[in-house]
Structures are given as structure tokens and as C-alpha cells.
Amino acid sequence: MEYPLVGYYLLKLEAGNVGLPGAAILTLNLGVYAPTGQVTGDATITQAIAPPDGKITVPQVTGFIHDTGFGKNQRLLAVQGQYVVCVPPPAIGCYLAQFQCAATLNEDGTGRATFTYGGHTVTDVPVKVVSQENGTLEALAKKAEPAKAPETATA
């Protein structure tokens, strides 16, 4: 796995025991500012359980990602955020619940993660990089360019 050393890039991670029925699966969509290691983005936790708890969206997560820089080089990721939980009737109201995630990523894009949401903690689950894109303005502009129509010969 290639990690850009400068600039801004997009990183999508998936953590959890994918394929295990009822397992909580975490998806992180992150923007990484490489010079400082600052990370911002969002998180989604999905689980095959009764609504409304089957999908939790954390609209904003912040944190950091850094290389260990010694021995078997790994990247350390830590993010946190809050999400709104509304209680079902007969109770009334909503509250902010905490979300946290810590992960280690190997150079091949795999690793281990632990995440906490509400009163649940999911420990030592596999994590993998689903996608990574260079987020420079030039790369984003190339993606946004419309496809050119083939030229036709006129007689």
C-alpha cells in the first residue's frame, strides 16, 4: 500500500468481522492532511439487528494518523466523534453518544482495530483499506473532466 507523503488524500477503511452474522461493521470515510496527520471525515456502523440500531451514522469524526517510524513500520489511527441517539416512546428525548476508534495499519493496508460506540466496544477486529485516492486538486480535476466524444470525419 502506498501512502502519500505530502498533500491531501482520501482514505476509506472497513473494520469488523465481515461475513459474521450480527457483527458490527465500521466504515470510515476520511480525508487526511499528510503534513500534519490530521484526519476528518465520517463513520458508519452497520449491524444486522432490529431498527433503529442497525445503522449508526457519526457525521463528523476527527483525529490523527501517524507512522511509527521504527521497526516494522505501521500507521496508527485514532478518531473520535459524537452522534445523536433518540430514545423510543414512552421516553422522550435525544442525547449525544460518543464514538471512538483506534487502529494500526500495516504497509499492505491491513491491520487491527478497536472501536466504541454507545455502550458497546468491539475489540481487536480486522481492518483494511478499501480505497485510497490522491486528493490533490489536479487529480480531482482529472476525475471531474467529462469524457470527450469521438471526432467524426466530415466529407
Rank of each mutant, 00 (worst) to 15 (best):
L13Y: 13
Y33E: 12
L28H: 06
A48P: 04
Y9K: 00
T68A: 06
G7Q: 04
K148V: 13
P51G: 07
A153G: 08
T62Y: 06
A149E: 15
V130S: 02
F99D: 04
L96Y: 02
Q132K: 14
R75L: 09
N106H: 04
P21V: 15
G109Y: 07
G111N: 03
F115Q: 00
Q80I: 00
E151I: 15
T62D: 09
K12G: 00
K12Q: 15
Y95V: 11
V32K: 04
Q132H: 07
N73M: 07
V79Y: 13
F70R: 11
F64C: 00
Q132Y: 08
P88H: 04
L77R: 01
L10G: 00
Q60P: 01
A149C: 08
G19L: 02
Q100T: 12
G63S: 08
T152S: 14
P150I: 06
V39Y: 09
T154R: 12
Q38H: 14
Y9M: 04
K142S: 10
E151G: 14
A149R: 14
Y9P: 02
Q100C: 04
V130I: 13
V58Y: 06
D124K: 07
Y3I: 06
V39S: 06
E138P: 00
Q38Y: 14
E138Q: 13
N17E: 11
A149D: 11
Y33M: 10
A15G: 01
V127E: 03
N29R: 10
G16L: 08
V61F: 01
K142P: 00
E14T: 11
A144N: 14
E151L: 13
P90V: 01
D67S: 12
K55A: 06
A78W: 04
C86F: 05
T110M: 06
A144S: 13
A43Y: 11
D108R: 01
T110I: 05
L96K: 00
A48K: 03
A23T: 02
G22R: 04
T123R: 15
D67T: 03
L5Q: 00
F70I: 07
N17K: 09
I45R: 08
G69W: 01
G22W: 08
N134L: 12
A103N: 05
N73V: 01
A97Q: 03
L20K: 09
E14F: 08
L26V: 00
N17D: 10
N73A: 09
T40C: 12
V6S: 11
Y33F: 13
G69K: 02
V85A: 08
D124E: 10
N17M: 10
A15Y: 05
Q82F: 15
Q82C: 03
Q98S: 12
P146C: 04
A15I: 02
V122L: 09
L140R: 15
A50K: 06
G37S: 07
K143M: 13
V129E: 13
F64Y: 14
Q60F: 15
G54L: 08
